[in-house]
Every structure is written in C-alpha cells, then in structure tokens.
Nucleic acid binder design. Structure first.
Lengths: 219, 219
DNA sequence: AAATCAAATAAGGTATACCTAATTTCGATT
DNA sequence: AATCGAAATTAGGTATACCTTATTTGATTT
C-alpha cells in the first residue's frame, strides 16, 4: 500500500512520542506536528483503517507492528541522510535535521542499503541517536547528560533536553552550541554543580540542572 | 515565492521541450507529464500568473527569465544527484533517473554547491547531459550518435533517440543496454552502415539508421 | 452530583492538483 | 466560405490534507 508524505510524518512522530511518553494523545501529536487537533483526528482515522495504528481513548495512539516497521524505516532513512550531510557535505550539526526531513521520504529499491554501505555502516547519527538497522533492530542511544559524563572526558554537545528560550539564551551567553566541545573538569559533590571547560576557555562552574539538560556524545 | 513539486515538474518539462521543439503546446506537455490537457491548461494559468511562463496561442508556452532560472536549477539538481547515485551509490545508468526525480526537489541553502563540490564539479551527468552551473550557464552535451563517433573509439551507450519498442527489442537482441561499451570498428561508405564491436564480442554490422539512434559518450 | 475545563470529535470549508465530459476555437481541407 | 477534426478550453467533480468553529465527552474539582 502506498503512503503519502503526511502519513509518513505521522508514523515517525508517533514512534518518537511512544518512546518518550507513556501514552500518545491526539493533542500531543497536534502540538508536535503543528497542525490542529481536528486534522490529527481525521488522519488517525485513516491510519487506523490502513492498520498502521491502533487508537483507544484509554491507551492512546499506538503503532501496529506494520506501522512500527514503517516508522523505523523512515527514522533509519532520516538518520542515514543526516550522517551523509554532516560527513560528506560538511553541513553543521544543527543544519542537517531539516534537510534530512526532506531526504527521508525519497523511495528507491535498495537506497538505504547502498547509502549505509557507502557511509560504512554508521551506528549513530550526528545527534547521538542510534540508526535502526535494516532488520529494524535499534541499539540504545549513546548520548548522555553532561552531568553523567566521565571526569576529564571531552564530549561534544549534540542536543538539549530543555529547549525553553531561557535555557537557549543562557547557552548562547556561554557560547555553547550544537557541536561545541566541552570537557568535564570536576564535579562538586555538595550541590551537584559541575565545572566544565568550554572549548579552550577557562573552566566555569554550572548548576546541576544545567548539566542535566545538556546532552553530549563522548569521543 | 514558494513553489510546489508539481510546479517544478512543469517548469522542468517546459524547459526540456523548449530545447527540442520550436513551440511548446499544452497537448505536448500533457503527453510528457501523462496528465490530461485540461489539467495542463489550469496549471499554465497559474504559472502565467506567477510570471514564470508566458502563453500565447501562436507562440505557445515559453519560460520567462525567472521561470528559466528555476527550471535550470531543478535540472542542475537532477543531474548532480544522478551523478551522485551512479558514482557514490553505484547505481546503474538506467536506475538513477527515477531516484533523481525525487531528490531534485529537496531544498536547502547551499545544497547544490556543497553537492557539486563534494562530487568534484562534474560537467556531465551519467547520460551525457551537461550539468548547468550555479550561474545558469550550460555547455552543450557531449553525447553523440554512434554514427558520428571516431573510428576505433570506444564509447558507452548513454541514451537512445528512438524509444519505440521495436527499436528497444532489437537492442535487447544485440545485448545492448545503457552502459554497454561499443567500439566503432569501421564505417561502410556505400550505405552508411557501420561495423561495431559490442563489449568483447565479434564485430557486427548495423544499419545507418540504427547507428544514428544510439547515443554514446566517448571515453 | 453539579460545575468546569480541556481534550476529543463533528461539521463544514479551503487550496492543490488532478479528473472526465462537454464545448469552443482554429487551422486545414474541401 | 462551409466543414471538419484536433487542440484548447470550460464546467463541474474527486481526493488529500489542511483549516475554523461548534459541540460533545470525560476527568477533576467543588
């Protein structure tokens, strides 16, 4: 059965939300996809008919096995293309996502296998998210909160948990962006705050809360 | 102004037809795009409003300068992706076109420049068609009819002029397909027929008409 | 249990890009 | 100039995927 670009985006988003939340509601989907709740309801009906999702009010929206497989394939495509864009076209970590959103929908027999072979079987995308294998297997991610990094280790910022504009502005003040190298210099057991070195600057002290919201990939 | 996938396909197709025909009619577009003439008329109206094409019954459909630029950009994208698919993902010459039809519509600032840099500024796509430069300049193609090849030269089949099923079946009989290497062994002045070697086979004699319909890229 | 409020859903509408089935236009015979 | 046929065009219709504006449902508080 043929599927449209919209349907693919729904499946992908439901898959992501299922990972993060105990129950996926129409309202959550509407928020994530930036469309009205009414439109979501309509589409969910279609996806239920096609047997790609189940919907019960109590349990929320869930992918069927078929739906799950389709979603994983799209996520696989997205992450492989992200890797390509960073590694081969030298885009920066924050630029790749939006382009991969377009590339992920390209269909061709064998495309992902060829792409993956050409990229030498990357395991993680530039944001530290695991790339699902062709058989649907997906290892856990390898990005961790800065607060849990090894002492002395150097990591690269790959994402933030909190994306409030307060937090983002604070990041900007500290000259931290996606890709910035950060070394964990010391942890202060007293209040959980940590001392980090941003790039080659002098070390600074940041709060535990901050350190928990900054996701890094150790290298 | 934002443009849709359909609009892009119209512009691209009009551009190709303008090259080939003295006048582009709605009926020709309908045939090429495999949609009804009525739908073409509708779309042409929209494109005229957006000032991407001009339409007068006597002169037919023509791209404006803006439309021409947009069309060339899409063609550039198409041919760069074709090159990528062949060169990097190792697809065969006949597989790349359909995939590039999808990739050509991906939008991202800088994408084509990066892609082109990464591919080391290819001049021609796998079918011997020239890849327009960023500034819109496009050199002439470098594929020629087999009948005009240099004696002794070895070329690779990149396209056919005549795509009637009779012709294609004859090709199949001779084991010629896109990508097949052909050496021009000799020309017979008498009737214009030529003697060719297909791959590593014994030379065979083919008619002038045949040789004129087979486009090769010398190497 | 009644009131309240947000989430879910229904109803009806829009734009895009197709379609088929008339109808009109126009150039080429006759 | 009348006729004919193909091409162009109009009219009206469909599916997709959105929308806004009710209305309903249901969970939570009072």
């Amino acid at each position: 059965m043929i599927h449209s670009l919209s349907e693919e985006n729904y499946l992908k988003t439901i898959c992501h939300l299922e990972d993060k939340e105990s129950k996926v509601s129409p309202a959550m989907l509407a928020k994530r996809l930036k469309i009205s709740a009414a439109s979501v309801i309509e589409m969910i009906k279609k996806l239920v008919e096609k047997q790609w999702v189940l919907y019960e009010k109590k349990r929320g929206i869930r992918l069927t096995e078929k739906g799950q497989n389709m979603a994983l394939e799209i996520i696989r495509s997205h992450r492989l293309w992200e890797f390509f864009l960073l590694e081969k076209l030298l885009y920066t970590w924050d630029e790749v996502h939006d382009i991969a959103e377009q590339l992920e929908h390209v269909k061709a027999s064998d495309l992902l296998k060829r792409l993956e072979h050409y990229l030498e079987y990357p395991q993680y995308d530039p944001h530290g998210d695991p790339i699902p294998q062709a058989d649907g297997f997906m290892r856990p991610g390898d990005r961790i909160p800065l607060s849990e990094a090894q002492l002395e280790s150097i990591g690269r910022v790959v994402a933030v948990k909190d994306s409030s504009s307060d937090f983002l502005q604070y990041l900007q003040k500290l000259s931290i962006e996606i890709g910035t190298e950060i070394q964990l210099v010391d942890k202060v057991p007293f209040n959980g705050s940590v001392i980090i070195r941003i790039g080659k600057d002098h070390p600074v002290n940041i709060s535990r809360e901050f350190a928990e919201n900054l996701l890094i990939k150790e290298q």
